[in-house]
Amino acid sequence: MINVYTKVGCPACKMTERWLTEHGFGYEELNTTERTELLNDLKLQGYSGLPVVVTANNSWQGFRPDYLSKYLK
């Protein structure tokens, strides 16, 4: 399962979601605008920006097509 932490109005979040969709990956969007406790949890884990992508074995922040290709294919 792929979780993508996003916020409203985040271009990098939309680009990440678009990349996943275009490459046929299912994911769950976790919107931190609607659920602010998620953002607090991410900050405690050391993340300072969105999106944050979490897979079974890896996680990273930002739109990273290089990581998406490397860790998901």
Rank of each mutant, 00 (worst) to 15 (best):
K73E: 15
K73H: 11
L50N: 06
E17V: 09
Y67G: 05
K7V: 09
Y71K: 14
G62H: 12
R35P: 00
G46E: 00
W19K: 01
M15D: 14
L42Y: 03
G49K: 06
L50E: 02
V8G: 05
T6D: 00
I2L: 03
F25C: 05
R18D: 12
Y71F: 15
Y5S: 06
I2W: 01
L50A: 09
K7W: 03
V53E: 01
T36F: 05
R18E: 14
N40C: 02
T36L: 09
T21M: 04
R64V: 08
V8L: 12
N40S: 13
L38R: 06
R35M: 11
E29F: 05
N57W: 07
S69T: 13
S48V: 13
N31G: 11
P65E: 09
E17D: 05
C10Y: 08
N3V: 05
C13N: 10
G49F: 09
K43V: 11
K43C: 00
T55K: 02
L39W: 13
V4L: 07
E28F: 01
N40H: 06
L30I: 10
D66Y: 10
D41Q: 11
P11L: 10
V54W: 01
P51N: 01
N31S: 11
Y27G: 04
P51A: 01
G62C: 08
L30C: 06
Q61F: 15
L72C: 05
K7F: 03
S69I: 02
A56H: 10
K7T: 12
E29W: 07
T33L: 08
T36E: 12
T21N: 06
M1A: 14
V54F: 07
G62P: 08
L39K: 10
N58M: 07
M1F: 03
E34H: 10
E17S: 04
Y67I: 13
H23D: 02
T16G: 01
G26Y: 08
F63V: 10
L68T: 07
K14F: 12
S69K: 15
L72H: 02
L42E: 02
D66L: 12
H23A: 02
G9H: 04
T6F: 06
V53D: 05
E34Q: 14
D66Q: 10
P65I: 11
L50W: 01
Y67W: 11
Y5K: 02
D41I: 07
S48W: 04
L72T: 02
C13P: 07
D66G: 13
Y5W: 01
T21V: 11
L68R: 04
K70H: 13
T6Q: 02
E28H: 05
V4R: 00
I2Q: 00
P51K: 00
N40G: 03
L50G: 07
Q61G: 15
K73A: 13
E17C: 09
Y67M: 15
G46T: 05
S69L: 12
T21A: 04
Q61C: 14
H23E: 03
Q61I: 07
V53Y: 07
L68G: 07
K73G: 13
K73Q: 12
L39E: 13
A56Y: 04
E28D: 08
N40E: 10
Q45F: 05
L42S: 03
T21L: 04
G46H: 03
S48R: 14
G49T: 13
T33G: 15
T32G: 14
T16W: 09
T32K: 08
E29K: 12
G9P: 02
N57F: 09
